[in-house]
Simulated assay, not measured.
Amino acid sequence: MTTWITVCDTCKRDGWDAETAGQTDGEVFADLIEKASEGRKAIAVRRHSCLMGCNRACNIAIQSKGKLAYTLGEFDPTPEAAEAVVEYASLHAEMETGVVPYRQWPQPIKGHFVTRHPPLPDK
């Protein structure tokens, strides 16, 4: 089953300047996550304008049907952070419930979890 990484492409971190930046921080992060996820089975990436976590930019969501979903934030749009997001999403895809044991979390993902959501009921 596919685990989706939804990246807020409108995120702007403190100090973002429309006059000097060619892209939002969210667009930069989305580009990096898309690149990091190339060739990964069971991972898909999509962009969404505004996950409503503006004070915690950059934000992403990790979701899959029938599994716990997570919102994460306060990422710097770096290759290291993008790789960690993709690695965590890959682990999420492998787990039946979406719960990844803490000891398996990539270090750069720790401290970025904002919310956890139960799966939607089938009925």
Results as ranks from 00 to 15, higher is better:
Thr3Trp: 02
Trp4Gly: 01
Trp4Glu: 14
Trp4Arg: 14
Trp4Gln: 13
Ile5Thr: 07
Ile5Arg: 00
Ile5Ser: 03
Thr6Ile: 15
Cys8Asn: 04
Cys8Tyr: 12
Lys12Trp: 02
Lys12Thr: 13
Lys12Asp: 04
Arg13Ser: 12
Asp14Ile: 09
Asp14Thr: 11
Asp14Ser: 10
Gly15Glu: 08
Gly15Lys: 07
Ala18Asp: 15
Ala18Cys: 01
Ala18Asn: 06
Thr20Asn: 08
Thr20Ser: 11
Ala21Glu: 14
Ala21Thr: 12
Gly22Thr: 15
Thr24Trp: 02
Thr24Leu: 02
Thr24Glu: 05
Gly26Asn: 02
Gly26Gln: 04
Glu27Met: 14
Val28Glu: 14
Val28Trp: 00
Val28Met: 13
Phe29Trp: 09
Asp31Ile: 08
Asp31Phe: 06
Glu34Asp: 12
Ala36Ile: 10
Ala36His: 04
Ser37Lys: 03
Ser37Thr: 02
Glu38Cys: 03
Gly39Gln: 01
Ala44Glu: 15
Val45Leu: 11
Val45Ile: 13
Val45Asp: 01
Val45Ala: 03
Arg47Phe: 06
Arg47Ile: 14
His48Val: 15
His48Phe: 14
His48Ile: 14
Ser49Ala: 15
Cys50Arg: 10
Leu51Gly: 08
Met52Ile: 10
Gly53Tyr: 10
Gly53Thr: 11
Cys54Pro: 09
Cys54Ala: 07
Ala57Gln: 05
Cys58Asn: 09
Asn59Asp: 05
Asn59Arg: 00
Asn59Cys: 13
Ile62Asn: 00
Ile62Trp: 00
Ile62Val: 11
Gln63Arg: 05
Gln63Asn: 08
Ser64Gln: 01
Lys65Asp: 15
Gly66Leu: 06
Gly66Ala: 08
Lys67Glu: 01
Leu68His: 10
Leu68Thr: 04
Leu68Ile: 03
Ala69Ile: 02
Ala69Tyr: 01
Thr71Gly: 09
Glu74His: 11
Phe75Met: 11
Phe75Asp: 04
Thr78Val: 07
Pro79Val: 04
Pro79Cys: 00
Glu83Val: 02
Val85Gly: 01
Val86His: 07
Val86Ile: 03
Glu87Phe: 02
Glu87Val: 04
His92Ala: 12
Ala93Gly: 03
Ala93Asn: 03
Glu94Lys: 14
Gly98Cys: 07
Tyr102Ser: 10
Tyr102Phe: 13
Arg103Ile: 02
Arg103Asp: 15
Arg103Gln: 14
Pro106Gly: 05
Pro106Trp: 03
Gln107Cys: 05
Gln107Lys: 11
Pro108Leu: 08
Ile109Gly: 03
Ile109Glu: 00
Lys110Pro: 04
Lys110Cys: 12
Gly111Ile: 13
Phe113Tyr: 07
Phe113Ala: 07
Phe113Gly: 06
Phe113Gln: 08
Val114Pro: 07
Thr115Trp: 09
Thr115Lys: 09
Arg116Tyr: 03
Arg116Met: 10
His117Cys: 06
His117Trp: 06
Pro118Ser: 11
Pro118Asn: 08
Pro121Ser: 13
Asp122Val: 13
